[in-house]
Amino acid sequence: MIHAAVHDEPEVHSRMAVLGRLRASDTVFRILTRAAAIAVLVILGAVILALVEGSLPALRAFGFGFLYHEQWNPVTERFGALAPIYGTIVTSLIAILIAVPVGVMIALFLTELCPMWLRRPIGIAIELLAGIPSIIYGIWGLFVFAPFLQQTVQPLLIDSLEPVPVLSTLFAGPPYGIGVLTAGLILAIMVLPFITSISRDVFDTVPPVLKEAAYGVGCTTWEVFRHVVLPYTRVGVIGGIMLGLGRALGETMAVTFVIGNAHRISGSILAPGTTISATIANEFTEAVGDLYTSSLIALGLILFVITFLVLAAARYLLARIERKVA
């Protein structure tokens, strides 16, 4: 005791020092994390600024017409973005229309119905699908998938749908094998793992008590899924879909290989088309002249805006669902 009293003063001192050190490290930590967060904003701002600045010559030359003109002529330097915008949206739409039901069904099977021994192989296969580089999808699409579509699926579609009024235009020939539909199908395969693995993870969070209670009152598996699992997890599922949509909108290499790269809008989804990112990837290296380069950068800006709008729409949708639930 006495001993302690003698040394009282230095001990207070050292405690102060320790506290000071802790406070200092806390401050440093706060500054570091804040800097990291602000860096994101700065980078995003710089990207927007660079895109806007780069696309100014094109926007000045073509005005709003850039958005709704189909012509893309490097010879006369008349550029309009309608064909790539159309291709981007249609291919992503096809991808989502196919990947969402299939992905959610896979996730449901894995969490609710799958025998234990099959769970791991399927789960790992889905994760591997997400790890395949997009160039591999492109090469596979061009060498294997497109010839298969051209020789079997597309002639069948064209012939069997010919008498049906709207579908006959939507699936009009000739069967090239590559085109908007092929790109959409490849994209569907590419976004499938995102939707599946996120859906599976959120389906796993549903408390077993809820499901067991539903089964207890005599619900079928479909009813349990429709009225218990899905309402409980829809925020997560929509998040997964948006992540997939984001990838589909921006995917470049795989699409470039199989879409046919034609600056035309066609009523048929078997016809070749182009997307924004495929156009940029194809033409940027050889774009000579300021207006051409600037038009390609303006395409990038449009893709940025489309992605932003999709994210904003997703947020809005989620906010509305949450309000309704509350």
Partner: peptide, 24 residues
Amino acid sequence: VGVNTSLQWPAGIGAKGNEGVANN
């Protein structure tokens, strides 16, 4: 149509590179 390193093609499909055209 005119002359340039890339064109507004009146018809057909586009493939990337000599190897892409050869393959298609």
